[in-house]
């Protein structure tokens, strides 16, 4: 009887498929292992989870609350659903909110064709935005010698903030303001080029899902990001 308390493997169901999870594994990790795709924009392998984009919301049998798959831990006997009609509807609406929030003009964006937001719209079948555009007036910070931050394309996923803090350890990037006024800032809201803490490592640029962070000199569609270094870095550090 005592042995049962030490069972570390949990068995559960995702979309009707039986799966086995390690202790502490999230539903998102588990789903990916088993070839079940759950959309997300703020999750990034190699850094901590944020739970802000709400695209990976899932339903768990017996609970009427939706939880983000990236932060929900697998429990014994759970029955998880990732593609119920209402989840699909909410995801499309959330994406509409993101597309209406700032000025995402794919046709003239450096990341056209290599953008997570753009492909998410395609994946979820958002052929148009059902909400009026908010058309905010936002600056572009081009003070850094190598990189540019275009707030018009930012979706506030905070991947850059997390990679800067957790992997590079510079803590240059942060967020300020409330609600719709939240902005990604450098140090104490200084121009990026004047940041004393930025190491110009460029990790933030590579992890940015959209064209908000880019390398100087890139034209439309030229900004291709590399993400493979992150899990690798993390793995090497663990060893």
């Amino acid at each position: 009887m005592k042995r049962q308390a030490n069972v570390r493997i949990k068995t559960l169901k995702i979309d009707g498929i039986d799966v086995g999870a390690r202790e502490g594994e999230t539903i998102l990790e588990l789903a990916r292992e088993n070839g079940i795709h759950i959309p997300t924009l703020c999750h990034l392998d190699g850094v901590s989870d944020w739970g802000g984009c709400r695209l990976c919301l899932i339903e768990i049998k017996g609970s009427n609350r939706l939880v983000p798959a990236c932060m929900a831990q697998a429990e014994e006997g759970m029955e998880v659903f990732t593609k119920t009609p209402r989840l699909v509807t909410y995801r499309k609406m959330i994406l509409d909110l993101l597309l209406s929030e700032r000025n995402h003009v794919c046709a003239v964006c450096v990341s056209n064709g290599h953008c997570d937001l753009q492909s998410m719209a395609q994946e979820l079948g958002n052929t148009h935005v059902g909400l009026p555009y908010l058309n905010p007036s936002l600056p572009v910070d081009a003070t850094h010698p190598y990189f540019i931050m275009d707030h018009n394309r930012c979706i506030l996923c905070q991947r850059c903030v997390r990679v800067c803090r957790e992997i590079e350890g510079a803590q240059t990037k942060g967020a300020m303001g409330r609600g719709i006024e939240v902005r990604i800032i450098h140090d104490l809201n200084e121009p990026w080029g004047q940041s004393l803490t930025c190491t110009s490592c460029g990790k933030c640029v590579q992890v940015c899902p959209t064209g908000a962070l880019l390398q100087r000199g890139k034209a439309v569609g030229e900004m291709v990001k590399r993400r493979d270094f992150l899990p690798y870095l993390q793995m090497m550090r663990e060893d």
């Binding site: 000025n103 003009v105 794919c106 046709a107 052929t127 148009h128 058309n135 007036s137």
Partner: peptide, 19 residues
Amino acid sequence: VSLGDCAVTANVPGMRNPF
């Protein structure tokens, strides 16, 4: 039928909207 990004999203013509 809204054909193309300008009809669907306002696209480039819409870039003047913040002004």
